[in-house]
Design a protein around this nucleic acid. Structure first.
Length: 892
RNA sequence: AGGCACGUAGCUCAGUGGGAGAGCGCUACCCUGACACGGUAGAAGUCGGCGGUUCAAAACCGCCCGUGCCUACCA
């Protein structure tokens, strides 16, 4: 190995740390809003500022980075806007935990101090995920990094709020909402996660007021009985019709409550009698409104029993349940307890069981906004890929409910509404109003709530580009080209961006939405810290390199299927990265001291060159089409196959003799073309493997500067050389057949064998003679005989095969084992027979001949004759072998 | 309960109307002057089951079984 040669194995650590900084310094990621190039823009799904890079991020951002790098190579002006989300509840929870470690609470320190601490936390840790994205190679325009709580974005939030309020699309009202007693805030319905819960169904006896019997109700939440204001039965339920209008006595509470009839009640479920707790159940609330029932709130915001709960007041809801059950049993009211599995709403942030509650909140009236958002997808102004998600989008949008946007937390955009302390009037405006118009001199108090995090991220595509100002960025890059996301935030985020973008910009926020898979573990389970099954992308990058991780994620990013990731697979692609490295190493070792020419002949004389250049064209076309269609896995597979199994396995092996031989012209051409093809491969691979491609590209002699400034190769159909591909196919067939015989007959790799090829046509003779060197090297042949059939004797003591009409003989003088060669041939013949059977059946089928397209029939006929000839030859060989075997036996 | 996916080699998955594929794993041989993170060859599948459409089905249709996800007001 000479001095300038590369190390034997690829060392990714130095390479990766080196190039990212270089790209940033050179400003390669920066987008120019004044550029005349066609625009391509993406806004990043902003990770939570509290976040740590997980596999979902890694996949999401790898795919975005592939698109951005690909489009840059294709000559687009690319803007990838990065940033982070303030993540209201999530971040508040993190800082609250930190406080509690100091023995403090947020209420203890007060709102101002608490917010100061959150900002401090953000200053300290908010950059972590950004640096992790850089580690991943994400080519974001960091000069445009945004945060949802930036001044600019906050101004956009206020402007949107005020505008929607003035249009009557934001209102304040008392509604049943889902309440998290741990986070102490209202949630939007979409933020509720239904989880299966193993619980019990309790049957409780409610005695009739008149003393004549009782009604038995079934409930999963006995503690709410304290707030019962009725019992409902189905009006047509014969068991209970006579009770309707009567009263029952609520056990433990002794309150008299009516029995009502309503068709909402399912007769088959439980006992067919339903206790009604209007203050703590969505459906009971509706029933109460319909029947004019009282509303008694027995559980407060903390999930603790309220004073209305009488002697149970102050108990936690679950402690209360236990006590109530005990008391019911004591009083003889508990009739039956059965195990019961049902789904209960949990907080998507802290997994606490939610409490339905009547509460005064701010809402967005979404229906009017949804209409335009539906229409835009229907008319393909925005296309969702894969299209199957469009259905889910329509269903959700058509059934969209009003969106509760107020949160009773402190970290977030404070609602721009002020209340007059005198008359209570509401004033909504961008800045604090000077005073109440009705009560001169009266004080104003700002609403203490903040907005749902998703309210600000819903504005992300235009707020990050400077809206409400009419900036050059907006003009150049809005609407964005594509949004890349996983389906789990399709409604949280994408749907809201559609509604807001169309409403405020008059245009959809993105032309396409690419919905990718969820990353799961090897068992198909969702990765989560609590399950302990997370594969940490940072650790994977440490162990196998960023390029290997990115390639693994890309290779498995098939549309419409979740990714089951395992570490072995990432490791496997590290080998691929190493293979690229070594292909380059071979070249560089052989390029040293040689001049390579700048221009590549379109039709070189040597077959191998014509073949690889033709194959390259196909890969160029395949990769472009795959990426344009978001078929990332196909893009990755095409390059894997081409680099490894065509360029390395065949092409480099075929041209090696030119490197080592003494024909300077052949050597020069081999060097130039091999370098050219590798250089093209590096450009094709760059979107998915930015680091190693840059490293090698800069090392290749013909190139100068960064691979990021290269042009993505263009497909030229006229450079496809079908004849060369066909000839190499034939050549590979012959070589493989010889190797197969060697392997099956246990010929040691070191031993060279004599081979005779008998062809039917002159063209095959010419091909094999011309390619004699390649044949000899790749099949390890000592002497090669090529002739037309009949012009050379068939060797006797030889194992044989038939490839594309060529009779191939591997001469095994004295060492040929007739028995095993006979068996090998029989196996081959058996396979052939099967194939011939299928073909003959088709060709003897009248319906097939009558109805199938002529080209299919023609193909079948050709196949039949090809197989027939092959069969004839093999059968003959078998006969010869058997005769030799028998002769050997009798001779012994 | 409804909806949507998925079920192809030991594992993970491509393939969508005309010759069952890849990667990993496995077996055998080989450190052949880029690479043992490598090379060459090989074994391995009733394409979940049943029925239908078709000249032709892994693919299209129906039913069933299994798995996963989403939605829903049976408390």
């Amino acid at each position: 190995m000479s001095e300038g040669a590369l190390p034997k194995a690829y060392e990714f650590v130095e390479v990766e740390s080196h190039w990212y900084g270089h790209w940033e310094e050179q400003g390669f990621f920066r987008a120019d809003e004044k550029s005349s190039k066609p625009p391509f823009s993406i806004v990043i799904p902003p990770p939570n500022v509290t976040g740590q890079l997980h596999m979902g991020h890694a996949l999401n951002n790898t795919l975005q980075d592939i698109l951005c790098r690909y489009k840059r190579l294709k000559g687009f002006e690319v803007l990838w806007v990065p940033g982070t989300d303030h993540a209201g509840i999530a971040t508040q929870n993190v800082v609250e935990r930190q406080l509690s470690q100091e023995g403090l609470t947020r209420h203890g320190v007060g709102r101002e101090e608490f917010l100061r601490r959150v900002w401090e936390w953000r200053r300290k840790y908010g950059g972590i995920i950004i640096n992790q994205l850089k580690r991943l190679g994400a080519s974001c325009d960091w000069s445009r990094e945004r945060f949802t709580m930036d001044d600019g974005l906050s101004r956009a939030v206020r402007q949107v709020f005020v505008a929607l309020y003035n249009e009557g699309l934001i209102y304040r009202g008392k509604r049943m909402i889902n309440w998290c007693p741990r986070c102490m805030t209202a949630l939007a319905n979409i933020e509720v996660e239904a989880e299966d819960l193993d619980s019990f169904l309790y049957h409780v006896r409610y005695p009739l007021e008149n003393g004549k019997g009782a009604l038995v109700v079934a409930t999963t939440r006995p503690e709410t009985m304290l707030g019962d204001t009725a019992v409902a039965v189905h009006p047509d339920d014969r068991r209970y019709t006579s009770y309707i209008g009567q009263k029952v006595i609520l056990p433990l509470v002794e309150r008299r409550i009516p029995v009502i009839g309503d068709t909402y009640v399912e007769r088959e479920f439980g006992t067919g009698a339903l206790k009604v707790t209007p203050a703590h159940d969505f459906n009971d609330f509706d029933l109460a409104r319909k029947h004019g029932l009282d509303l008694i709130q027995v559980i407060d915001e903390r999930g603790v029993m309220s004073p209305e709960a009488g002697s149970y007041a102050g108990l936690d809801r679950y402690a209360c349940r236990k006590k109530i059950l005990k008391d019911l049993e004591k009083g003889g009211y508990l009739v039956k307890v059965e195990p019961y599995k049902h789904r209960v709403g949990h907080c998507y942030r802290c997994a606490s069981v939610l409490e339905p509650m009547l509460s005064l909140q701010w809402f967005v009236s979404t229906k009017p906004l949804a209409e335009a958002a539906i229409e835009s997808v229907r008319s393909d102004k925005t296309q969702i890929v894969p299209a199957k998600w469009e259905n889910d989008y329509f269903i959700w949008m058509e059934n969209v409910e009003d969106w509760c946007i107020s949160r009773q937390i402190w970290w977030g955009h404070r609602i721009p509404a002020w209340y007059c302390t005198e008359c209570g009037d509401v004033l909504v405006s961008m800045e604090k109003p000077s005073g109440c118009p009705n009560c001169p001199g009266a004080a104003l108090e700002q609403d203490s709530d903040v907005l749902d995090t998703w309210f600000s991220s819903g504005l992300w595509p235009f707020s990050t580009m400077g809206w409400p100002d009419r900036t050059d960025e907006l003009k150049k890059f809005y609407p964005t080209s594509v949004l890349v996301t996983a389906f789990d935030i399709l409604f949280f985020w994408v749907a809201r961006m559609m509604m807001m973008g169309i409403h405020f910009m008059g245009e959809v926020p993105f032309h396409e939405v690419y919905v990718h898979a969820l990353v799961r573990d090897a068992q198909g389970q969702k990765m989560s810290k609590s399950k302990g099954n997370v594969i940490d992308p940072l650790l994977m990058m440490d162990k196998y390199g960023t390029d290997a991780l990115r390639f693994a994620l890309t290779a498995f990013a098939a549309q419409g299927r979740d990714i089951k990731l395992s570490e072995e697979r990432i490791e496997g692609y590290k080998h691929f990265v190493n293979k690229i490295w070594n292909a380059a190493r071979l070249l560089l070792m052989n390029l040293e001291g040689f001049e390579t020419s700048d221009s590549i002949p379109e039709k070189p004389a040597a077959l191998a060159h014509r073949w690889i250049l033709s194959r390259l064209q196909r890969v160029v076309s395949e990769t472009s089409e795959s990426l344009d269609g978001y078929r990332f896995n196909e893009y990755a597979q095409a390059l894997y196959q081409f680099l490894w199994h065509e360029y390395c396995d065949w092409y480099l092996e075929m041209i090696k003799p030119a490197f080592y031989g003494d024909d300077p012209e052949a050597g020069g051409q081999a060097r130039s073309i091999a370098a050219f093809v590798l250089e093209q491969i590096l450009v094709l691979l760059h979107p998915v493997m930015p680091f190693i491609t840059e490293e090698l590209y800069q090392k290749l002699p013909r190139t100068s500067g960064s691979v990021m400034k290269a042009q993505y190769p263009e497909y030229h159909a006229e450079r496809i050389d079908a004849a060369a591909e066909e000839q190499v196919d034939k050549l590979m067939g012959v070589i493989t057949a010889i190797r197969n015989i060697r392997g099956e007959m246990n010929v040691q790799p070191a031993i060279r064998v004599e081979v005779v090829c008998l062809c039917e046509g002159d063209s095959d003779v010419a091909l094999l003679k011309e390619q004699a060197r390649t044949l000899q090297d790749l099949a390890r042949i000592s002497r090669l005989g090529v002739a037309r059939i009949g012009e050379m004797e068939k060797p006797k003591s030889a194992a044989g095969a038939v490839v594309g009409g060529i009779d191939v003989f591997v001469v095994l003088k004295d060492v040929l084992d007739f028995e095993s060669e006979s068996k090998r041939l029989q196996k081959e013949i058996a396979k052939l027979e099967k194939e011939i059977g299928v073909t003959n059946r088709k060709l003897s089928n009248e319906d097939f001949l009558g109805k199938a397209p002529t080209d299919v029939i023609e193909k079948e006929r050709e196949k039949a004759s090809r197989l027939g000839e092959k069969m004839e030859k093999l059968a003959h060989r078998l006969k010869v072998m058997d005769r030799l075997r028998d002769g050997a036996r009798t001779g012994e």
